[in-house]
């Protein structure tokens, strides 16, 4: 028996990933771009039709 014994439980810390968002004076600019047609000003692909063996899906 270990009555009156003293036990110090270890400190357990469970933390989520270190994601943080804080407020700060300043300016952040975020620019995203779409997709520019690379060939819009020129004729599109030369595409010739021909019969092909069907691909099995």
């Amino acid at each position: 028996m270990k009555k009156n014994s003293s036990y110090s439980a270890p400190e357990v810390r469970v933390q989520n990933s270190k994601i943080r968002t804080t407020i700060l004076a300043g300016s952040t600019k975020v620019t995203g771009h779409g997709f520019e047609f690379e060939e819009v000003a020129t004729p599109t692909q030369t595409v010739s039709a021909k019969e092909r063996i069907a691909i099995k899906f």
Binding site: T21, T22, L24, A25, S27, T28, F35
Partner: peptide, 15 residues
């Protein structure tokens, strides 16, 4: 026509 910019004043992160 192809881009979109957002400006955040006084909102950012701990830089």
């Amino acid at each position: 026509s192809l881009q979109h910019t957002l400006i955040f004043d006084e909102i950012g992160f701990d830089a």
